[in-house]
Amino acid sequence: MSDVVFVAAIFVLTAVAALFLVACNKVMGPDEQALAEGGSEELLEFPADRSGAGT
C-alpha cells in the first residue's frame, strides 16, 4: 500500500476519535443542566484523615 493510503488512514483514525469525543460529550449531557444540579456546597475536607469525611 502506498504512502497516500497510510497518511489518509492516520487522518481517518483521528477523525473517528474526534467523532467518538462528540459522542461521549452527548453521553455527558449539557453543562448547564449539570451545573444547575442541587447540592449542599459543603467544603470537601479531610481533617487529618480521621473521619473519612467527604466519602
Binding site: 444540579e37 449542599s40 456546597e41 459543603e42 467544603l43 466519602t55
Partner: peptide, 15 residues
C-alpha cells in the same frame, strides 16, 4: 461540574 454533598452517617466510606 458536580457539587459536593455533605457526608452523612449513611455515606459509604471509601477509605
Amino acid at each position: 461540574r458536580k457539587r459536593t454533598y455533605a457526608v452523612t452517617t449513611g455515606t459509604l466510606r471509601t477509605d
